[in-house]
Amino acid sequence: MFIYIDILLRLALWLLLAPLLPGVINKVKAWVGGRQGPPVLQLYYDLARLWRKGVVVSTLASPGFIIAPAIAWTAVVAAALLLPLAGAGAALSFDGDVLLLVYLLALARFCTAWGAMETGSAFEGMGAAREVSFAVLAEIGIITAVLTLVVQSGSIALSSMFEPLPGPGAALLAVGLFIILLAENCRVPFDDPNTHLELTMIHEVMVLDHSGPPLAMILHGAAVKLMLFSVFLAQAVLPLSELPLLISLAALAGSVLLITVAVGLVESLTARLAFKRVPLLLTIGFLFCLFPLILTWMGDL
C-alpha cells in the first residue's frame, strides 16, 4: 500500500513541478534582457488552454500522429519515475534499471521522430533527421556518464549509483552532463526554442504540425525531460543522498533551480551554434564525461 502512495506522490511531483522549469528559464532570460517577461506559471496556462483545444490533423497523417506523442510522453514520465530523489531513494529499483531509463528516452525519441515523419513535411523530416543523429552523440555521452557512476559506486542500480566523484572529476562530469542536458532538451546553443525559422530548429520543427492535446503532451513531456536531466545532473555531482531526507530534498530542489537558472543564463548570453558545429560541442560534452571516467578508473594512478 505504502509503495502505491509513494509512486503516486512522485508522479504528482514530477507532473506538477516540471512545467515550472521552462517558466523559470524564461523569467531569467527576461530578467537578463531587462524585460518583464511572461509569468513563471505561463506554461501551466498554455497547457490548460491546449488541453481544451481541438486538433488539426494533416490529411497525410495516420492515427500514429496522435498515438506517438502519447507514447513519447508516457515513456518520458516513466523514465522520470525510475530516478531516485536524493534522500527519498527510488520507488522501484532493480539492477540495470539505468538502462531502462536510457532506452525509455530512446523510445520517446523514436515516437517523436515518427510523429514528425507522419506529416510528410520536409521541415519535419529535417527535424527528425537532426534529432536522431545528434542523439547518437548525446547517448554516447550519457552512457559514459553512467559508466563513470558505475565505476565510482560499484553498483548498477540507479538507487545506489549516485556516489559523487571526488574533486575535479565531479566538476568535469557536471560540465559534460550540462552540455548533454542542453543538447537533449534542445536549448541554446544547440537549438532555439523560441525561433520561428524552421530551418534552424530541431525539436520545435518536429512538432510544427501538432496542435491541441497532443501538443500539450509534447510540451509537458519536454518539461519533464528537462527536469529529469536536471535531477540526474544534480545527483550525479552532489552527495545529496547522504543528507537527512528533508534537507536533501530541499538541496535537490535548490540545485535543480540553480541548473535551470544556468540554462537561462546560457540562453541569454550565447547565440545558437551553426549546425556544422553542433557535433563538435557534443563531442566536447562526451569528452567531459569521458575524462572523469578515466580519472575514476585509474583511481590514484
Binding site: P279, L280, T283, I284, L287, L290, F291, I294, M298, L301
Partner: peptide
C-alpha cells in the same frame, strides 16, 4: 577536421595517462 583532431587529442591524452604505469 576539428572533431577528429579533438578525438585524436583525447585518445592521445588517455593513452599517455594509461601508459605511465
Amino acid at each position: 577536421g576539428y572533431i577528429p583532431s579533438l578525438l585524436l587529442g583525447a585518445g592521445g591524452t588517455i593513452a599517455a595517462v594509461a601508459l605511465i604505469r
